[in-house]
Amino acid sequence: MAEPLLIGLNLRAFYRLKMGGVRAVDGVDITVPRGSIVGLAGESGCGKTTLVNVLLANVRPPLELLGGSVLLDGLDVLKMSRDEVRKKVWGVKVSYVPQAALNALNPTKRIIDLIRDAVRQHTPATDQEIVSMCKRRFEELNLPFDSIYRYPHELSGGMRQRVIIATSTLLNPQLLFVDEPTSALDVSTQKQVLRMLLDIKNDRIIDSIVFVTHELPLLRQIASHVYIMYAGKIVEYGPAEEILLEPQHPYTKALMYSVMTPEPESRQRGIISIPGEPPSLISPPPGCRFHPRCPHAMDICRTREPALVELRSGSGVACFLHHSKEAA
C-alpha cells in the first residue's frame, strides 16, 4: 500500500491564556491516505480547527506546540521555519479554506486581485500566468470564468465558496483542508459545493481532502474515512460507512442519534438526547473526558484515560467498554 499523504503523530498543542492552558489538541494521531476524503467531526470547541492548524504547521501564539510530528508527503513540516513552510508547503502542497471564508474577502478588491495577492505569497508568477491558470481551472470545474473580474458581493454565497475552493487549488496542492465549507449555505447550494469537492478529488486535481464539520450527514455523503473528536482527543476513527452507521464509542453513538434527517429511521428513533455539554478544555474531567455524559460510565472511566485501540485494521476506538471485550 502506498505511504499515506499525511501522518500526524501524538500531536499536542495548547493555547496559553491568562486563566491557564487550554489543551485543545491532546495526543492526536491522524492519517490521511492518498485519494481519500477524511472527515473530521466534533462539536464546536472540541479542537477540530486547532488540529487543522497544527497539521498545516500554522502554529502561532497564543497556540503553542507541546509535541508530536506531522509528515506531509515525507516532509517533517513542524520542524520547518515559517518562511520555509510558506514557500514549500502552503499553497503548493496543502491549501486551506477556513471557516466563513466567503465572508472574509476584501470587498473593495475584485476576485482576480485577491487571487493574485494569494498566489504571489507562494510563488512569483506574472499576471498573465495567473489569469491563464484561473481560466484552465475554472473551465475544468465548470465555473464561469468571468466571475474573477467581479467583486465578492456580486457573487452568490455558493458561487463565492466554489470560487474560493477553485482558487485554493491553483498551485496544484496535493491536500486540501476545508473547514465547515457549507455552513451558511442552503441545501441545494451545499450539494453543489460538495459535488465540486468530490469532482476535484476524482479528477485528480488534488489528491486528498480533509473535511471539517459537525454535520455527520455531510460526511456520510462524501467522506471515505472519519475521525470523531471530543474535547481535544480522537475518540473513534475508521471507514466512513462503518463509523457513521455502526459507531462503537458512546459519544459517536450519541452524535449519530442526534442527527435529524428526513428519513424513516430518524423519525422512528425519535428524540434521543445526551445530557450535559462538552467540557471545558481548561480543566477537563479526569479519566475519559466523556464519562460525565456517558450512559455506560464505569468506575475505571472516572480515573483512567482509555487509549485509542485499533479494533479492526483501519478503525479504532478509545473506550473501556471495547477494551474489556478485547481482553475477554
Binding site: Q190, V259, T261
Partner: peptide
C-alpha cells in the same frame, strides 16, 4: 421535491456520490 433530493441523508447516499 428538490429539497428532498438535496438534503444530505444519513442512511442513503446521493446518486453519483
Amino acid at each position: 421535491r428538490r429539497l428532498r433530493e438535496d438534503v444530505p441523508l444519513m442512511y442513503r447516499k446521493w446518486e453519483g456520490f
